[in-house]
Structure formats: structure tokens, C-alpha cells
């Protein structure tokens, strides 16, 4: 599989990463190399192998339905670039 310039432009936009036009071609080459490298795994027959979801044999831990957290709005907004009256503030979003 090979990544072209258009794909790079699209995923950069989806990830909200600004990439100047002249960077797209080199990035496409780099990403293609990475994908080609990972694609070697396609040579392994995995038809009957279930996907490995963890390196250790543990189950998803579950917790009880108890309120144990929250109640510190000042801390939540402390590092925000903008906040007012315990709200985060962001440039106006208009749909």
C-alpha cells in the first residue's frame, strides 16, 4: 500500500496538523515506507488466529457505580487558555 499526497493532505487536516504543501510529498514517501514495513506481516497466515488484545492474560477490570471523583472545577479549568465562571471558553463555534 502506498500513501499519496492527497491522502497526506487529508489526514493532516483530520488531525488538525498544518503541513505546508512542500512537506506533503516527503511525508507521503515516509508514511509509505512505514506502511510497507508493517505490511510484511501480511505474509503470515492469521486466518484462524484470534486478534491479540493484550500481552498479558487479564480481563477488563470493572468498577462499582460509586461517585469517587469530581468537585474541583477550578483545577479542571486551571490550565485552560481561556476560562470564565468555571467554564472553558473557546472561540465562538457556529454551526
Amino acid at each position: 500500500m502506498s500513501v499519496n499526497k492527497d491522502t497526506v493532505r487529508k489526514i493532516a487536516h483530520l488531525a488538525r496538523i498544518a503541513e505546508p504543501e512542500e512537506r506533503l510529498e516527503p511525508l507521503a514517501r515516509e508514511l509509505s515506507t512505514i506502511i510497507d514495513w508493517v505490511e510484511q506481516l501480511d505474509e503470515v497466515e492469521t486466518e484462524d488466529v484470534p486478534p491479540m488484545t493484550s500481552t498479558v492474560a487479564i480481563k477488563l477490570p470493572l468498577r462499582d457505580d460509586v461517585v469517587t471523583d469530581g468537585g474541583y472545577p477550578e483545577d479542571i479549568v486551571a490550565n485552560a487558555p481561556g476560562s470564565q465562571d468555571q467554564f472553558f471558553t473557546v472561540p465562538k463555534v457556529l454551526e
Binding site: V66, D69, G70, P73
Partner: peptide, 23 residues
């Protein structure tokens, strides 16, 4: 539920802004 799906913060309606938020 009393607490959120993946955190222990409260789910009650109508609380002060960002007062029922965990990290």
C-alpha cells in the same frame, strides 16, 4: 447510573459548570 461510564464523577443533572468532571 450514579457515576460516569469510565470515571467516578457524578452524573446528576443541573450541577455547577465543570463541578462533576474528573481528570
Amino acid at each position: 447510573s450514579k457515576a460516569k461510564l469510565f470515571s467516578g464523577a457524578n452524573t446528576e443533572y443541573g450541577a455547577e459548570p465543570n463541578s462533576q468532571v474528573s481528570l
